[in-house]
Design a protein around this nucleic acid. Structure first.
Lengths: 250, 250
DNA sequence: CTTGACATTAACGTTACGTCATCGTCTATA
DNA sequence: TATAGACGATGACGTAACGTTAATGTCAAG
């Protein structure tokens, strides 16, 4: 029994174009081609198509499907195993995204907790000066001046936005604390946090470590972090340490 | 303070090309363009870029991001809410895929015996309740009550016999799959299967079709069928369809 | 003045097809 | 037998969000 493109397509619930395409990339060739150029598929081709569609539904790329079908069954098992891992990673990522969405929603709804607001204000007011003094002791004059300049050049509105972005990050980190400081999720958040710091200055790995210490040792900083979560400062420090260790050597 | 493309790009951790692209599509225009054609960004642009990157990390499309940033904050909330739902749907889908991957792995490992037992237990235990709930949504109360009554009136021994009979039918169908869903052999098995359903309720053609869909769409049913053979659910559906079409008009 | 870093635009490649557009082929019917 | 209409083919553009050359212009430093 032979199928034309239309027949096979409607049988499998796909479009004719898809069959053309699969022929084009060599994934599924017709059993024969008439001298009029028409494609004719046989049952074997139909079965191969079933396999293709099965793996396609599993979100394999057509390239991967070609690999799997060309190699013996053993490769299929291996590919499925790896694919499973990839799917799980995607789920974890999506879960993280949902969480961030949630905290952003909360923030936008103005449900910022008292503690957040406090962190907020303290950063923007005189604490900034103390912070600068502390930073100066730690990293010298140059960076501090830059920090001052950058921060001072923002309007009040902008400062508010920047600080609130920081709050979202901290809230995310708190939520991810059970996963451990070395978990990919937390490490990704640290990366985000590092990006965030650029509003203030260019952070070197050493400075990141220094901040980890600062959050623990400085009473004011420590108080702010503890207000959000009792273990946050400590957690940040170890997460930062791991983050710095995994940084490319450059 | 002005940034060149490179400066802003490395500040934000993105590529120059990305900035070019964002300019091109009008998502982020430079604050000014020199007469040499160079793009210059100011801090306002940098802040907007931060927003863009934030939403981008949340898997919003650039189109959506443009919408969100152009409308007031209220729209952002709405968008985030919808986005949350979409993310959850993606997770559910991925979970289903993982399940299918697992059963396919099991199948390829030749663990069919084990899988039969599992089908067995899941069908007989709580799954029966869920199944009834689903059936209720589909066909209303009457049939379900009848199903419950019939099924509930069997002893454990009888239930076991009925379920194992079902498994035998499915295994027969799997063996006959290469013959095609319209083959007389398979059609005879579908008739046998229909008889078998009478243990649960009186199946009308419409309900048979509904079952075909259910076996494909419901994750639990689908998982059970996929465990036996990756294509069984789809195959059942088309075989049922053919069977119903060839049914005498009464 | 040269060199090297950085800037620009243009254009193709990527994935898996959808969607015309143009044109040839087959089949049933007037 | 002429023709309409269904079906076949190929070609080419469009999609999303950039990556990647390529060719060329500009700027700061030595």
């Amino acid at each position: 029994m032979q199928y034309t493109v239309k027949q096979l397509a409607s049988l499998a619930g796909i479009s004719v174009r898809t069959l053309h395409y699969y022929d084009q990339i060599g994934l599924l060739k017709p059993a024969s081609v008439g001298e009029n150029g028409y494609r004719y598929y046989d049952k074997e081709a139909a079965l191969r198509l079933q396999q293709i569609l099965f793996y396609r539904e599993l979100d394999f790329t057509l390239d991967e499907i070609a690999q799997i079908l060309s190699r013996p069954e053993f490769d299929a098992l291996e590919a499925l195993g790896e694919h499973r891992v990839a799917l799980e990673a995607r789920i974890e990522r999506l879960k993280g995204l949902i969480h961030t969405v949630d905290s952003t929603i909360l923030y936008l709804k103005g449900k910022t907790t008292m503690s957040q607001k406090q962190l907020f204000e303290e950063f923007s007011a005189e604490k900034q000066k103390e912070y600068e003094a502390e930073a100066q002791r730690r990293w010298g004059e140059k960076h501090v001046k830059e920090s001052q300049k950058r921060w001072g050049s923002y309007t009040a509105e902008e400062k508010k936005r920047v600080l609130s972005e920081g709050n979202v990050i901290y809230q995310d980190i708190i939520a991810a604390m059970p996963l451990g400081p070395g978990s990919p999720q937390v490490q990704a958040m640290i990366a985000r946090w590092r990006q965030h710091l650029r509003y203030f200055y260019e952070p070197t790995p050493d400075m990141l470590r220094g901040l980890g210490d600062l959050y623990n040792d400085d009473p004011d900083f420590n108080a702010n972090f503890t207000r959000m979560h009792p273990d946050l400062a400590k957690f940040m420090k170890s997460a930062i340490e791991i983050y710095c260790q995994n940084l490319p050597v450059n």
